[in-house]
Computed example of a mutant assay.
Amino acid sequence: MTTSNLTRIVPRRRPGEARAGYGFIALDGLGLIVFVAGPALLALVIGLFDVDGFGKIEFAGFDNFALMAGDKLLWKCVGITAIFTAIFVPTAFVVSLCLALVVKNPYPGVGLVRAALFLPQVISLVVIGVMWKFLLTDKTGVVSGILSPLGLGDTSWLGDPWLALPTVAFISVWFLMGYQMLIFLAGLQDIPNELYDAATVDGANAWQRFWNVTWPCLRPTSFFVLVTSMVNAIAGTLAFDIIYVLTKGGPANSTSTVIFYAYQQAFTYGRFGYAAAICGFVVAVLILLTGAMFAATRGGRFNDA
């Protein structure tokens, strides 16, 4: 069964269903405009001023943006953010998809398994960070005790510049995989069983059913997961809360992402205008990346061919 045949089999959405869908997301869209788009636009405006938080507000034009070009530490943070995103996004995608496939079909205790995997989502990220910091304490932590027989008991997971970023990425995957699993699970349950029956009749094995039925039908869901995880990695809570609690950007700035660097510029050094300019840069990058993903995948929709 080819993708083009699958396209003809999947029924088109009726206009009424589309209107209902837009109605469901209307309030969420309004919230995004008020609490995301509005602050992003305000950051761009503040980036044009020299603001120190003590009443100084002077128009600076594009001076703050010009300073970014020569800020070596900022571009180091850009590289760290890119590495973190490259580790986190594909790993979380694969892990959450595999988990969704595991808990898709009903079996005794599947509800408890789903709840356990989703449990981190109902816990504050600060609590998550404190918990993992306790578990990863050098030499005396629980993780060191478990890995001691393997000769890894003395490993400093958060204190080694080469290990800190992958460790933070691993914790981020652990935190977000339950949420992404539910998104994939919803996508899997929306696939008509008739498609699997037709593929089975055609003699397709389990891998062929996944590749020719499951994977094409999950394209819109996959697109949503990729975009949201990318935003989380670059400018979301994962890029700030977990890093702030676990490492505060260290050691040696090895976990300092762009958004964390902007926070330091604003609330440690009082350079609010410069921090706003950095945030404006981050917003512009996210818009470009998201636009490129939409253009390359057509929003995850099926090909019309």
Rank of each mutant, 00 (worst) to 15 (best):
Y107T: 13
Q189T: 07
V110P: 15
P216W: 11
T2S: 10
G299R: 08
V102D: 14
T290C: 05
L218K: 07
T91L: 02
A262Q: 03
L286D: 02
C77P: 00
F24A: 13
F59L: 11
T140E: 03
A235D: 02
D197H: 06
S172Q: 14
Q180W: 04
W211C: 13
P216A: 03
G145D: 09
G111T: 06
V143N: 03
T268W: 14
L48V: 00
D154F: 09
F93V: 12
T297D: 15
L158M: 07
I57N: 01
W207F: 06
D138N: 07
S254W: 04
K104F: 06
C217K: 12
I57M: 02
K76A: 15
D71Q: 05
V103R: 15
F260Y: 14
V142T: 09
G291M: 14
A204S: 12
N105V: 13
A115S: 15
M293I: 07
G270S: 11
D50C: 11
F267I: 00
V103K: 13
A26N: 07
A86C: 04
A20I: 14
G249E: 04
L117I: 06
G250Y: 07
G145Y: 06
T81N: 03
D28G: 09
D50S: 14
L158Y: 01
D138Y: 08
F88A: 08
D304K: 05
G236Q: 08
D28R: 12
L286M: 08
G70R: 15
G129D: 10
A66S: 07
L136S: 02
S222N: 05
V225T: 14
R14H: 13
V126F: 04
R8C: 08
G273C: 03
L147A: 08
L238P: 00
P106N: 07
D63Y: 06
L67V: 06
P220Q: 03
K76Q: 06
V285T: 14
V45K: 01
R13N: 11
L136R: 01
I243E: 08
F240D: 09
A115W: 09
V173S: 02
F302I: 00
L44P: 00
A305P: 06
F65G: 00
A262Y: 08
D154G: 10
I25V: 09
G145M: 08
S144D: 11
S148G: 05
A284G: 01
L165I: 04
L246Y: 05
T155F: 02
N212K: 10
W207E: 05
E58K: 01
Q189A: 05
R271V: 02
G178I: 09
T91K: 01
S4F: 07
V201T: 10
A252S: 08
G47H: 01
M1H: 11
T81E: 04
N212T: 03
I259Q: 07
R271T: 03
F49G: 00
N253M: 12
R298T: 03
I183E: 04
P251N: 11
M177N: 09
A235M: 13
I25F: 10
M177P: 13
V127M: 05
I259C: 07
L195Q: 11
L27I: 15
L163M: 09
D241G: 04
W132G: 02
I191H: 07
T81Y: 01
Y261I: 02
L188W: 12
D63M: 15
D50V: 09
I25Y: 09
V122T: 15
T214R: 09
G153P: 10
L238F: 07
